[in-house]
Nucleic acid binder design. Structure first.
Lengths: 91, 91
DNA sequence: TTTGAATATTTGAATGTTTCGATATGTTTA
DNA sequence: TAAACATATCGAAACATTCAAATATTCAAA
């Protein structure tokens, strides 16, 4: 992971709505449907779509189309790589 | 660490200059002087001061005044807490 | 106690982000 | 095929961030 990608992931993580979304993945074994996410945030559908795009563009979520629904899967590998970069800051 | 603090740290980490600064701490055993940081970035002094303030406000760096110089120390504890929150996203 | 060096704050312009309403795209079902 | 549904994109308003120039503050040394 290069610095540009680290920066992009950090930016994706720097928003209250997106943090809330990510926290819900634990309860659902790492995958959530778009509709479930829309239900849990008090935002319009386009806003939620925008936030999800940021998380997908940062590779934190992997979208999987199922008919007219979209299932988002948490990308644990990217999360682990990001954590490795954080640990590398330490002396 | 609450969500607001997690968000603040993420935002502090979402800038190329600030990432560069943090990466230098490893080479210097976790502490750097303001002047060293100013030397390594191609930005004006006020801009660098502003970036350092964001890292300090996020508690990633602890400023220690030494006469008219400032020594910045990397806050490993906050980094560890942040990593714990990231791991908590995982299923 | 003035001078100079190191760092911080303020200001303003340019740019980026968040949000929403409207609309578009793609998919299932009647 | 038409209607209903789920999600994405567009366009614009409100707000936040970044950067540099100018200025202020703090401290050490002369």
């Amino acid at each position: 992971m290069d610095n540009r990608k680290f920066e992009k992931i950090s930016r994706a993580l720097s928003d209250a709505s997106r943090i809330t979304v990510l926290q819900q993945f634990r309860k659902k074994q790492g995958c959530l449907y778009c509709a479930e996410i829309t239900d849990m945030l008090d935002l319009t559908q386009p806003s939620i779509s925008h936030h999800l795009k940021q998380l997908v563009d940062a590779d934190l979520l992997i979208p999987e189309k199922e008919g007219r629904n979209v299932k988002y899967v948490l990308n644990q590998k990217v999360l682990d790589d990001y954590i490795d970069r954080l640990n590398a800051f330490k002396a």
